[in-house]
Amino acid sequence: MTSRRTLWLIPALLALVTLLGLLAALIGESGIWWPLSWATLAVPCVCSLYYLVRGLMPPPQ
């Protein structure tokens, strides 16, 4: 069984990264703000696609 701390660690990090990405593009459009927003919001995006594709693949024989 996963401990409560381990269970929520990755979801909490993903939520933090997402919020950072959402705010970064609002704060400014020059300098690092937009690339920072793209990079951080790409994390939940890539994670979702990765696990979706992995979940749809047939189980190993």
Binding site: L14, L19, L22, P44, S48, Y51, L52, G55
Partner: peptide
């Protein structure tokens, strides 16, 4: 069920906002 839970928790902050 696992995919629904997993994708839901990954996109939780974005979807909630």
């Amino acid at each position: 069920l696992d995919l629904h839970n997993l994708l839901g928790i990954i996109t939780l902050a974005w979807f909630g906002i």
